[in-house]
Computed example of a mutant assay.
Amino acid sequence: QYGWLGVISGASLVFFAFLGFDIVATSAEEVKDPQRTLPRGILGGLALVTVLYILVTLALTGMVPYTELAKAENPSLATAFIAVGAGWAAQIISVGVLVGMTTVVMVLLMGSSRVLLALCRDGLLPRSWGVTSKKRQTPERLQIAVGVVVAILAGFTKVEALEEMINIGTLSAFVLVSVGILILRKKNPHSTGYRVPLVPLLPVLSALLCVYLMMNLTTLTWVRFLAWMALGVVVYLAYGMRHSRLAHSE
């Protein structure tokens, strides 16, 4: 499907290309002056990558008609260079993609272990898992567990299904964060943590745009997402709700 709807559908599928920037925020405990350096790193990286994506898109549009790319079974950036007879460039791009995806996966694995560490500290997951190594002060136990789970999923699940699940999961997380900002501003207006500008306009706009992108994903992806969310609710009701710090403080 081409036109504006096609662009939005494509954006919903390749949203994972912007993953990694939000993961940087999970390393706040390991960063010097995080309130100053993290926003600069995240926003600066986003701006740079967005400009590069736009430039690549413009170059690709001028190189090969989109109808030619659509004829390929698995069209990619390398496909465009092969179509214009620059096979050597396609090989370099393929190696670059492999290296780039490897670094992204490593960052996501690191961020996942930090998120789980926070959940364990809050009691939403067993606290015995939320320990760090004495030598490196990193959650080695969680890091190994995340690596094993990811390896199993990668080996026995279709990549296309994982891509869409990653997209809808990330978008839903962004929606919750945006809504959470509004709630925190009301319940804890004097917080000394990170400050968000243009509240409530920016959080509301962010939540609506993320929901709009989610609506362009397939029905099967939504079914899998709801099943995954249901599993999370079961874990929370069966364990997290009774063992959380919030429950013990009340």
Results as ranks from 00 to 15, higher is better:
T61L: 15
V51P: 08
I92M: 11
R36N: 04
L43F: 10
Q35A: 10
C120A: 02
T79M: 10
A47T: 06
G44R: 02
E73K: 15
G111Q: 09
G87T: 10
P39C: 04
V99H: 05
T57F: 09
G100S: 06
S76G: 15
V104R: 12
L60R: 10
M63N: 05
V105Q: 00
Y53L: 13
Y66I: 12
S112G: 15
L109N: 05
K71W: 07
I92K: 11
I92E: 02
L116P: 14
T67C: 15
A86E: 11
A59Q: 08
M63I: 04
A83I: 06
V95T: 12
A47M: 15
E73A: 15
R36F: 03
L116H: 10
V105P: 01
L48Q: 15
S94Q: 15
M106H: 06
I92C: 08
I93T: 04
G41P: 02
L116K: 10
L43D: 02
P34S: 01
G44A: 00
Y66H: 13
I93F: 08
S112K: 09
P65T: 03
Q91P: 14
D122T: 03
L69A: 13
L109W: 04
P34C: 01
D122M: 05
R40C: 03
V56Q: 05
S76K: 12
S112H: 15
L119H: 04
R121G: 06
T102S: 15
L116F: 12
S76N: 11
P39R: 07
M110H: 13
G85K: 12
E73S: 15
L69H: 09
M101R: 11
L108F: 12
A59L: 09
L109E: 02
L116I: 11
G87V: 11
G44Q: 02
R40Y: 08
V64R: 01
R40M: 13
R114C: 12
G62I: 05
Y66L: 01
M101V: 08
